[in-house]
C-alpha cells in the first residue's frame, strides 16, 4: 500500500474577489495527480500555498507525515516546484542561479542536473532573459528534478514547450514516478498531457474542489477530460442556480 506524501485538509484562502473554499485532497507516493480547472479556479493559489509562497487562512497541510509551517521551510528540501511565472532574475546568468539554488539543497544531484541541461540543450552561460519560455521551463524543471524530490509540484509545466520537448518532459516525469516513486501534482490546461500521465484527477472550479476521479473512472466515463470538466462546471453552476450560458440574441439588433 502506498503511503500518503501530501495531505491537504480544509485549505482556505480569502481574497476580495475570490476564495479557496475548504480544499481537501491527498497525493500518495509515486502517484501522479492531475489538477484540472479553468483559469482563475484556484490551482496556482493552492500550489503556491503548498510552497509557502502565499499564506493560508485556514486548514492544514501535511507533507511526509508532518504538518507544514511557513516559518519552517525545511520541508521544501524534498519538494521540487516549477511555477507559472518564470521571468525571475532576468539579468543573471543561469550558472549563478543554479549555483545559488544548489547551495540551498542538502540532497542535490549535480550529475542529474548537468545531464538534464545537456538533454534540454541549455547553456548555463546565458542570462535568463536570453531564453525562450520553453527554455525557462526546461531550466526550472532541471532545477526541480536535481533536488531529488519526493514530491514535484508543477504548475502548467508543459505550456510553451514545443511538441517534441513536451513528450520528452512527460516521459521524464513518468519514469520519475515509476522508477523513483516520486509523487507529482501536475496542473495543465493541455488536458492530453494529464490524460497521458495522471493516475488520478482533481477537478477544481471557483475555488472549490468539485470532483475527484481515478484514471479508471475517467476511462469508464469515456469522455475527454475537457468535456468532463465542462460537464462538472455546468453541474456546479446549476446547483448554485447560476446560468452561465452566453445569450447572443441579446446583441441582435
Amino acid at each position: 500500500m502506498m503511503n500518503t506524501i501530501l495531505e491537504i485538509k480544509d485549505l482556505k484562502k480569502n481574497y476580495r474577489n475570490f476564495s479557496l473554499n475548504s480544499i481537501s485532497f491527498d497525493v500518495k507516493e509515486g502517484e501522479i495527480v492531475g489538477f484540472i480547472g479553468p483559469n482563475g479556479s484556484g490551482k496556482s493559489t493552492t500550489m503556491q500555498i503548498l510552497m509557502g509562497i502565499r499564506e493560508k487562512d485556514g486548514g492544514t497541510i501535511r507533507f511526509d507525515g508532518k504538518e507544514v509551517f511557513e516559518d519552517k521551510p525545511e520541508y521544501k528540501q524534498k519538494i521540487g516546484y516549477v511555477g507559472e511565472s518564470l521571468d525571475f532574475y532576468e539579468k543573471v546568468k543561469l550558472r549563478k542561479i543554479y549555483q545559488f539554488v544548489r547551495s540551498l539543497y542538502s540532497d542535490w544531484n549535480d550529475e542529474l542536473f548537468h545531464e538534464l541541461i545537456r538533454t534540454f540543450d541549455l547553456s548555463l552561460d546565458k542570462k535568463n532573459r536570453e531564453n525562450s519560455k520553453g527554455m525557462k521551463v526546461k531550466f526550472c524543471l532541471a532545477l526541480a528534478l536535481a533536488t531529488n524530490p519526493k514530491l514535484l509540484i508543477l504548475d502548467e509545466p508543459t505550456s510553451g514547450l514545443d511538441p517534441i520537448i513536451r513528450i520528452e518532459v512527460l516521459n521524464i516525469l513518468e519514469s520519475l514516478s515509476t522508477q523513483k516513486n516520486t509523487a507529482i501534482l501536475f496542473s495543465s490546461h493541455i488536458t492530453e498531457d494529464l490524460e497521458k500521465l495522471a493516475d488520478r484527477f482533481v477537478f477544481i472550479y471557483r475555488g472549490k474542489l468539485i470532483r475527484e476521479l481515478t484514471r479508471e473512472a475517467v476511462i469508464k466515463l469515456n469522455k475527454p477530460l475537457d468535456i468532463l470538466l465542462k460537464q462538472f462546471m455546468d453541474e456546479e453552476d446549476n446547483a448554485d442556480g447560476t446560468d452561465k450560458t452566453f445569450d447572443f440574441e441579446r446583441f441582435v439588433v
Binding site: 510552497m51 509557502g52 519552517k72 521551510p73 511555477g83 525571475f88 532574475y89
Partner: peptide
C-alpha cells in the same frame, strides 16, 4: 518582480 520573489519564496527559505 513578482516572478523573482515567487521563485525565492518557493526555495527552502522562509
Amino acid at each position: 518582480n513578482y516572478s523573482t520573489l515567487t521563485f525565492l519564496k518557493s526555495l527552502p527559505v522562509s
